[in-house]
């Protein structure tokens, strides 16, 4: 037996993510985006909503790194602020969906069979709405706003989390160590809390990291359609909407709206993949 320093699972996972080259790149991007979102109000060169009619539709310059839009607002500043909007939607939505989905999934997997069937039926049905169509229906009913977007995202992604949590719970429920815990007199709530939840949360965390790009894209998409956040708010989707209208005047708006979406998505996906490989080494293929 080699003498190892005892490692808990979480420190092992962190180490594995850092060893993965793409995971490292992902982590750096994620950190940058989060930093942008946190410090945007202090690092923007201009007030992102300040109009300056004389300077409208300018090309990139030292003063305006990515030029200005049709109202003379600094595109670069709006792009930085966009990170804040994106994460303001994505983080609560994904986190909320994860928590609710995990609870419901564990109830479905651990509770009585009829409840499981009922929950699964509802989840499968929600998943059978094409996401954007479902989002549009909700927006049509309750009107566009930042909260609507969060609501839609939560509704559409809860079933995914629930399903994964349920599968995990069911396979763990009959695992020997859970049987042993039962034999050792552990109560059901405690089994859920100390045996099932910790072994489920890792998989869901991976799903969460992979899901953030989808949410960022959905928020941007709805804002692009004019059905997301309200107009003066500098969302990446809103930049794209303006850019689409002015496609023949200035390409910078589309670049400023599109590029951060792609970079953010890449960062979270790389990070998520490394996390998945670390959490579930079985899935790790090659590399």
């Amino acid at each position: 037996m080699t003498v190892l320093k005892s490692q808990s699972r979480s420190s092992q996972i962190l180490r594995a993510v850092l060893r993965d080259r793409l995971g490292m790149v992902g982590l750096v991007i994620v950190t940058l985006v989060v930093a942008c979102a946190l410090f945007a109000p202090w690092i923007v060169p201009h007030d992102p909503n300040a109009m300056n009619i004389q300077d409208r539709l300018q090309g990139p310059s030292l003063q305006y790194l990515l030029g200005t839009d049709q109202l003379g607002r600094d595109i670069f500043s709006r792009m930085l602020m966009g990170a804040q909007i994106a994460l303001k939607v994505a983080l609560p939505a994904v986190f909320g969906a994860m928590v609710i989905g995990m609870l419901l999934g564990m109830i479905a997997g651990f509770g009585p069979e009829w409840l499981d069937s009922l929950l699964m039926l509802v989840f499968d049905t929600i998943r059978s709405f094409p996401t954007v169509m479902f989002a549009l229906a909700v927006v049509a009913l309750v009107g566009p706003s930042l909260n609507t977007v969060i609501l839609v995202v939560m509704l559409t992604s809860i079933p995914t989390y629930a399903r994964v949590a349920r599968t995990q719970t069911m396979s763990l429920r009959s695992a020997d160590f859970v049987m042993a815990a039962r034999a050792a007199g552990t109560s059901s709530p405690r089994i859920l809390a100390i045996h099932l939840a910790p072994n489920t949360v890792g998989v869901l965390a991976v799903l969460m990291a992979m899901d953030i790009p989808t949410v960022v894209a959905l928020e941007a998409g709805l804002s692009f359609l004019g059905l997301g956040v309200k107009p003066p708010t500098p969302s990446w989707g809103a930049l794209l909407k303006d850019g689409y209208a002015l496609i023949r005047q200035t390409p910078w708006l589309i670049v400023a709206g599109g590029l951060p979406i792609i970079v953010t998505t890449l960062g979270f996906t790389f990070f998520g993949e490394a996390l998945r490989d670390a959490v579930d080494p079985k899935v790790k293929k090659g590399r």
């Binding site: 941007a220 794209l240 589309i254 709206g257 599109g258 979406i261 998505t265 890449l266 993949e273």
Partner: peptide
Amino acid sequence: AVISVGVVAAPAFVVALLSLLLFSVH
């Protein structure tokens, strides 16, 4: 592997806008 992650990362409407910009407008 990097390419497939990369293209998954690009949401369809962003690709649509960028390709409109590049292939149609330019």
